[in-house]
Each structure stands twice: as C-alpha cells, then as structure tokens.
C-alpha cells in the first residue's frame, strides 16, 4: 500500500516536471494540435452564441432596422464608387512604381475570421479566431474590425489564429495623432476601473495642442501595422510630472469587448507589370 503511494507521488511529480520542461517547439506544437482538435467544437459553440447575440441585437433595434438598412444601402453605393476609384489609383500606383524601378509592392488582402473564444484564463487580452485554414495568415499581421484597429496575430495553427488585442500591455503600436504631426507609441493598459478597455499614449511633445476626441491613426512605422488605420480617440490628456511631455489615454475605436468578426490583413507581394 505504501509502495503504491510512493509510485503515485513519483508518477505525478514526473508528469508535472516533464510538462514544465518540454522544449518550446514541442510545447508549441502540442498547444497547436490541441487547438486544432477543439476548434470545430469551438466553432459550433461560437456560431451559436453569435447567432444569439445577433438575434438580441435585432430585438433591441426593432423599429430602427428600416432606417439602418437604408443607411447601409447608401453607404454601400458610396463604398462601391470609392472602390472603383481606388482600383484605378492602385493601377496607376503600380505603373509609377514600375517606372521608378520598384518592381515589387505589398498589397494587404483582408481575410475575414470569426471570433471563437477569448483567452481562457483572462490573464491576457487575446482572442482566438477561425481563419478557415488560409495559408497567408501568419504572425505579426494586423487585425482590424469595421470600426478600427483590433490587434495583431501572435500565433497560428492550421485553422485558428491568436490575436493579441491593442489593449494588452504587451501590444505596442506606432501611431500619429490626427493631423497634428505628433507621433508616439500606443501601449495597452488592459481595463480601466470601470472595466473599459483603454490604451495609453506617452511622451508626446508638450507643444502639440491636443484635444479630447482627436483621432489616433497607425503611423506605419515598425512594419506590422499599415499606415492610416484608426486605432482610437484621445480621452484624458495630462502633462507629465517633469512638465516636458504630455500623455493621454486612448479609447480604442474598435469595440474590443464585443468582437464577433475581424479581418486579418494578410500581406501579398505582387510584381509590377
């Protein structure tokens, strides 16, 4: 009986030690396999909850739906018109790049992905999305929603991708503030005391006049996030203790707390012809 007890303790200790000391590549492969195995089930649950949420939205909107529909129709016509113009500009841009000797250019193609789950432990600001097995989805690609910047891909498996949200302290984004010519690094601050997702922008030149509500866009520096994506809007603006710089809290433009579908900006290289 005593021997059996010792065997149990030794076995349990050995399992824990082995799992804790697995090489990084092995543990990453194990984690990806587990995600792929569970992703079909997660996908079913996620689409069910998304439908429930959509039904709730419809019920909540009620009388507002016809107005919303007509607004969306107008927006659709406008966007189609803009798309035609942009395609012409893109062709022109490719031609000019060719004339200047830039043979290749990078185009970002958005891949729609449904949000399957949030970080299971709640220690990270992260969501898992189902990208449908697209090979073009890779780490360090920007992720957006219809409202603005959401985050970046940090890990991928065959069907899923982990997206680190801009509100996570580990996520840093190079940004510029509207048309005021101020640049800075936006870093996640998690959640405010009221549970609102927030980011922080520090070391802004004190001479730049900032106003609450000023839009914050990605600057394109750093290579991960393309230029011009709306990241959020300035909220509280304060002067540092030294009086040399300003800092500001930024409210993300995307509804980080209620993400259902996001778009991964995959990079596709194309040659100018």
């Amino acid at each position: 009986m005593k021997r059996k007890g010792w065997t149990f303790w030794l076995g349990l200790g050995a399992v824990i030690l082995i799992v804790l000391n697995l090489p990084t590549s092995t543990s990453a492969a194990l984690k990806r396999s587990a995600r792929d195995v569970l992703s079909p089930l997660q996908s079913v649950v996620a689409s069910f909850t998304n439908r429930l949420a959509a039904a709730r939205d419809v019920l909540a909107a009620r009388g507002g739906l016809p107005d919303e529909l007509s607004r969306l129709r107008e927006e659709s016509v406008l966007l189609r018109h803009q798309l035609v113009e942009f395609e012409e500009l893109q062709q022109e841009n490719l031609l000019l790049r060719y004339e200047l000797g830039f043979m290749r250019s990078t185009r970002r193609l958005p891949v729609a992905a449904e949000v399957l789950a949030r970080d299971i432990s709640g220690w990270w600001q992260m969501v898992r999305v189902d990208h449908g097995g697209g090979l073009a989805v890779q780490p360090d690609q920007a992720v957006i929603s219809s409202e603005g910047l959401v985050g970046k891909v940090v890990d991928t498996s065959r069907r899923t991708a982990d997206v680190l949200l801009i509100t996570d302290p580990a996520c840093r984004v190079a940004v510029r503030i509207g048309e005021r010519g101020a640049f800075g690094i936006l870093s996640g601050q998690g959640l405010s005391l009221r549970g609102r997702p927030v980011c922080r922008l520090e070391l802004i030149n004190k001479d730049v006049r900032l106003r609450r509500g000023d839009p914050v866009y990605t600057s394109g520096l750093g290579g991960i996030f393309p230029r011009g994506l709306l990241a959020g809007h300035l909220d509280e603006i304060t002067l540092d203790e030294t009086g040399l710089h300003q800092s500001a809290t930024v409210i993300p433009a995307a509804n980080i707390s209620d993400l259902r579908v996001v778009f991964i900006l995959t990079a596709i290289e194309e040659a100018a012809r």
């Binding site: 824990i16 799992v19 804790l20 000391n21 543990s27 569970l38 299971i120 220690w123 992260m126 982990d162």
Partner: peptide, 16 residues
C-alpha cells in the same frame, strides 16, 4: 493541459 493549450499560458503552469 487544456487551460494552457487554449491560452497563452506556458504549458505546465496551470497543471501545477
């Protein structure tokens, strides 16, 4: 193992 696999926590922390 499930908690660690489905999140960014290093494998083994939640097991412990």
């Amino acid at each position: 193992l499930l908690q660690d696999s489905l999140g960014p926590i290093p494998l083994g922390f939640s097991v412990l």
